[in-house]
């Protein structure tokens, strides 16, 4: 695989945005490009992540693209997923070798509606969604499964809760660059040594909710178990999920979890996963770590998970 690195990151988290999507995205795009010393016309590929159900209108990504000012026309794509998967798509595109830079951004105004209920619409539309189980109730089922597994120490049992996360509005942007270009643009790029994502069944009843099988598979394919990260940024809106993830990732007590504060304190839906990658990369770039792990999640009870390993290179 071609060397690709995170060379800059910007995020904006607010309790309630007094701005539309484009106005949220504009400052983070400007700051991320500025930190990389790039202008929009220097970018080879642009990819974003968001969900229409947050804004409550179709095509919300269309308006947000105006924040980039795509004129002359640009090569651009969008995933209806957390921005971490937009970063994955951009990483794949950079492997082709014909371009050296990519801009990734994500946005979400989660506070516009009752997000706990809105997330119920991710469930099976015939058998589950009509019952409107809210996100926290589902997370509580997962916490219960973990408690019942008998695997937890007494101190961890206290952490196995499903307190609702603090929901915020936000946007984030990351600039990726390949090999030499990354080294030219950034004094210490955070190279992606491995990145992978996996999904599980949508049927909660067929999953062992106390284990995150998809995290384990993604971690294996991202080369996580051969590395020793100093930090792990985990996208766990609920504290019980953090325990499940640490277990799946085999993280020992030496690894500092969520030095940024994590998604429990600032859950910007659709953005929080990309922020984890940006936060981990920043700690590599500013020499706090030689290796860091970032994780992103999607769907109820950690249904889909992405692992991104970041490291400094000579």
């Amino acid at each position: 695989m071609r060397d690709v690195a995170v060379i800059s990151f910007s995020q904006l988290l607010v309790d309630k945005a007094e701005a539309n999507d484009a106005e949220l995205v504009m400052p983070v795009v400007r700051e991320a490009l500025g930190r990389a010393g790039l202008q929009k016309q220097d970018i080879g590929f642009t990819c974003s992540g968001s969900s229409d159900f947050l804004t409550g209108m179709p095509f919300s990504f269309v308006g947000a693209l105006d924040a980039v000012g795509p004129w002359p026309p640009i090569e651009e794509s969008h995933v209806e997923m957390d921005g971490a998967w937009a970063l994955y798509e951009a990483w794949v595109r950079l492997q082709h070798g014909d371009i050296d830079t990519a801009l990734v951004y994500a946005f979400g105004r989660s506070t516009l509606g009752p997000i706990e209920d809105i997330l119920a619409l991710q469930l099976d539309p015939y058998y589950e969604a009509p019952m409107w189980p809210d996100a926290t109730s589902l997370a509580a089922l997962q916490a219960r499964a973990l408690l019942d597994s008998g695997r937890l120490s007494d101190s961890d049992k206290k952490k196995a809760t499903a307190e609702p996360p603090k929901i915020v509005d936000g946007a984030a942007a990351v600039v990726l660059a390949s090999g030499d270009r990354a080294r030219k643009l950034c004094s210490r790029p955070a190279f992606i040594s491995g990145i992978d994502h996996r999904i599980e069944s949508h049927l909660l009843g067929v999953r062992d909710l106390s284990h995150s099988v998809s995290t384990e598979i993604a971690a294996k394919h991202a080369g996580c178990f051969e590395k020793s990260p100093t930090f792990a940024e985990l996208h766990a809106p609920y504290s019980a999920q953090e325990l499940i993830l640490c277990d799946a990732l085999k993280l020992d007590k030496q690894v500092t979890i969520n030095p940024s504060g994590g998604a429990q304190n600032n859950n910007a839906v659709m953005v929080a996963g990309l922020i984890r990658i940006g936060e981990a990369a920043t700690r590599v770039s500013n020499r706090e770590a030689d290796c860091a792990l970032a994780h992103a999640s999607s769907g109820p009870c950690l249904q889909q998970n992405l692992i991104c390993m970041l490291e400094a290179r000579a």
């Binding site: 159900f53 998967w85 991710q122 999904i199 949508h202 099988v213 598979i217 769907g299």
Partner: peptide, 25 residues
């Protein structure tokens, strides 16, 4: 009226345990 339906469709498309992406342009 299904939010991010790839989550619900993973099983029907044999994607369980595999990478799955959802594009919207």
């Amino acid at each position: 009226g299904v939010m991010m339906p790839e989550l619900y469709l993973a099983t029907a498309l044999g994607a369980v345990g595999k990478p799955m992406m959802r594009v919207h342009t």
